[in-house]
């Protein structure tokens, strides 16, 4: 399974990632998910989220998940980018793409990686609240 992982302060270049997609002739499904920072966190209005990360452990835990996925044998490639630092509302904090032969495997793998990431990968978020209410 081909894999690409980036934990980065840089904005996610979704157009560039899509342009760089690679699929062999036997692959029929490419599923990608873009996680975008919402303007509300719980009941609070926010302007951004500050992501912090224990990078060496995060990379290790991501690769353990990728190893488990590889053992399924149905995924040809997986690319995952997670931003850290301040991510403004409306910007993507996470981008993941799974390529496989069939859509069921691709959707399932994409969902599984995100669920497991939220369980084991040491990344945390701190909302940046709106400090001034807009003028009515």
């Amino acid at each position: 399974m081909k894999r690409f992982l980036s934990i980065t302060h840089d904005p996610i270049d979704e157009a560039g990632l899509l342009a760089a997609r690679s699929m062999s002739a036997g692959m029929g499904a490419a599923v990608y998910f873009s996680g975008v920072v919402r303007a509300q966190e719980g009941s609070e209005l926010i302007v951004a989220i500050d992501y912090s990360c224990f990078v060496p452990m995060a990379e290790h835990q991501f690769h353990r998940l990728f190893d488990q996925l590889e053992q399924r044998g149905s995924v040809e490639s997986l690319r995952l980018i997670h931003r850290i630092g301040r991510v403004a509302v409306g910007e993507a904090s996470l981008w993941i793409e799974v390529v496989s032969a069939h859509r069921g495997e691709a959707f399932s793998a994409c969902q599984w990686v995100i669920d497991e990431m939220k369980r084991v990968v040491p990344i945390w978020k701190k909302p940046v609240l709106v400090t001034e209410k807009p003028v009515a």
């Binding site: 996680g35 224990f54 995060a58 990431m117 939220k118 990344i123 945390w124």
Partner: peptide
């Protein structure tokens, strides 16, 4: 050793 709260990626 590292100690930390529940993780929140995504």
């Amino acid at each position: 050793v590292s100690l930390f709260p529940p993780v929140q990626g995504g």
